[in-house]
Structure formats: structure tokens, C-alpha cells
């Protein structure tokens, strides 16, 4: 029997409410990175549905008033440069006031360029050096087993990030210990820093690789909230193997027409210039 979500956690009534939340996260991502004048909005935007479903679709059990509650579920943002989507979710969930999002990347703010668990409650791993989050997730999933706790661990990686060998070392160890309390979501947004992920280092078939490593795999349209919710439900219920969700997404989802107009549909590691912010927000509806 799974413990109930603490009453302090936000759970959306229905898909429509989830969609409203997803839109707010997108707005926050764009506003906070434009205000910061640096950061990775496009990498954050592709993952909005996954993060929204995890935090507000009833999957993650957390207590924003007690971020270190030992029984909480863990979400590790292995692609740490997408910190703005994590911060937007934590603000929406009530870990800190929404205004704090505007301190992103500023001196003294705990909302650092990449997540730092030593300074911000709700951050479950300090990331930013790609390739490391899944191993940390394996460690947390093993700790749950030792302590006979039923918390679950979710790790989000990039599709370029899985070029790091450590990801596959972690994958093999998770399969060895049959960590069905661990879910890895690969944000398959088809781009990495220097170009198309398929061209820089083609890792296809990603699902086939995880299958070969002993994982249960699901492939979905990761920008469709309904599909994300269903896949997370299946992953949560699946027994005997860890699950990898290959989440097919678009980098910059939500503002794609603008990125096309700007001639850069990767838009890696740049904030939207302030003069395009209104146009971008209008696209979000």
C-alpha cells in the first residue's frame, strides 16, 4: 500500500488543470531566464510535461514545508542545465515563493544556474556535470530497499547526455538489482549543444539499448500530458525491472514558431532576448 500524498502537495484535479500548470511553468521558465540574461530555456521547455505530471499528477509525494521528509519520492534532474523547469515546479508546489524565480542565477540566490541540493530544499541531487544523475538515482533506490521504504526515484536525462558512459554503467547496475522503484526518463528532444543528437552521436535505438541492458521501456510523445501521465502510471506499477520512458519531445516546445523565425530550433543555452518575450508568451496562449 502506497502512502498517501501529504495534504500540502499539489495534485491537479484533471488533465485540464495539469495543462494550466504546464503553461505557468513555461511562462516562469521564459521570464526567469530572460531576466537572468543567461540559461537554458529550450532545454527546460521540452521537459515541461514530464515535470508537470511528476509534481502535480499525483506521482511525486513531497511536502514543501518539510523538503527533507525522509519518505518523500525523489526527482533527480540529471540534465541540470534545465534547472529553470525544476525551479518553476518547486515554486508552483510551494517550496519557495514564486517571486524568487526572478533571482535565478543572481549572486546570493539559492536558485543557481545548475541545481545545488546544499542550498535549495527540493533539489535531490547537485547536477550540471552531465551523466551522473542515474547513478545517484540507483543509490537512492537501493537506500529505499535497505530501509524498507516505498519511495520511488525518477531521473530525467537528456538525449545527448546518454552519450556519457556512466549512464550505461548505472543502467546495468539498476537492472542487476531489479530496481523497479527507479524510473529513468530520457528527454528525447533531438538536439544537444553542438547540433542534432542523431548527428553528434546517434544513440538510436534508445529504447532498444535500455531493453538490452535489462530495462522495461515505454516510448511516448513526451509533450502530450495524457501520454506522460499514462506512461508514469505504467512505470510506477511495473514490477521486477526498472522502467525507462523514452520521451519524444521538441526542444523549445511552446515557442517553436518563434525559434524557427529566429533560425535556431536548438537555441541551446541562450535566454530569449527581452524584446521577444511578449511574442513568446503570446504563443503560449
Amino acid at each position: 500500500m502506497r502512502r498517501k500524498t501529504p495534504e500540502t502537495a499539489t495534485v491537479a484535479r484533471d488533465l485540464e488543470q495539469l495543462q494550466q500548470i504546464a503553461k505557468r511553468l513555461r511562462v516562469d521558465i521564459l521570464r526567469s531566464t530572460t531576466e537572468a540574461g543567461s540559461g537554458h530555456p529550450s532545454s527546460s521547455l521540452s521537459a515541461v510535461e514530464v515535470v508537470t505530471a511528476l509534481y502535480f499528477g499525483g506521482f511525486l509525494r513531497y511536502d514543501p514545508k518539510n523538503p527533507h521528509w525522509p519518505d518523500r519520492d525523489r526527482f533527480i534532474l540529471s540534465k541540470g542545465h534545465a534547472a529553470p523547469v525544476l525551479y518553476a515546479a518547486l515554486a508552483e508546489a510551494g517550496f519557495f515563493p514564486r517571486e524568487d524565480l526572478m533571482t535565478l542565477r543572481k549572486l546570493g540566490s539559492p536558485l543557481e544556474g545548475h541545481p545545488n541540493m546544499a542550498r535549495l530544499g527540493g533539489v535531490e541531487a547537485s547536477t550540471g556535470s552531465l551523466g551522473q544523475g542515474l547513478s545517484i538515482g540507483v543509490g537512492q533506490a537501493l537506500a529505499a530497499r535497505i530501509d524498507r521504504k516505498d519511495y520511488r526515484v525518477y531521473v530525467l536525462t537528456g538525449d545527448g547526455e546518454i552519450g556519457e558512459g556512466q549512464i550505461w554503467e548505472a543502467a546495468a547496475s539498476a537492472a542487476k538489482y531489479r530496481l523497479d522503484n527507479l524510473t529513468c526518463i530520457v528527454d528525447r528532444n533531438h538536439y544537444q549543444q553542438t547540433g542534432a543528437a542523431e548527428e553528434v552521436l546517434n544513440m538510436d535505438p534508445i529504447d532498444g539499448k535500455f531493453t538490452a541492458f535489462g530495462w522495461h521501456t515505454i516510448t511516448i510523445n513526451g509533450n502530450d500530458l495524457g501520454e506522460v501521465v499514462q506512461a508514469l502510471r505504467r512505470a510506477t506499477e511495473y514490477r521486477g525491472q526498472p522502467t525507462c520512458i523514452v520521451s519524444l519531445t521538441h526542444k523549445g516546445q511552446g515557442i517553436l514558431p518563434l525559434l524557427e523565425k529566429l533560425g535556431d530550433t536548438n537555441f541551446h543555452g541562450k535566454p530569449l532576448p527581452a524584446k521577444y518575450l511578449d511574442e513568446a508568451l503570446a504563443l503560449l496562449g
Partner: peptide, 8 residues
């Protein structure tokens, strides 16, 4: 390097 922070 500034804003990217400690990890970079």
C-alpha cells in the same frame, strides 16, 4: 564564467 555556477 559567472552565472552558470559551481558545476561548470
Amino acid at each position: 564564467i559567472g552565472e552558470d555556477g559551481a558545476s561548470q
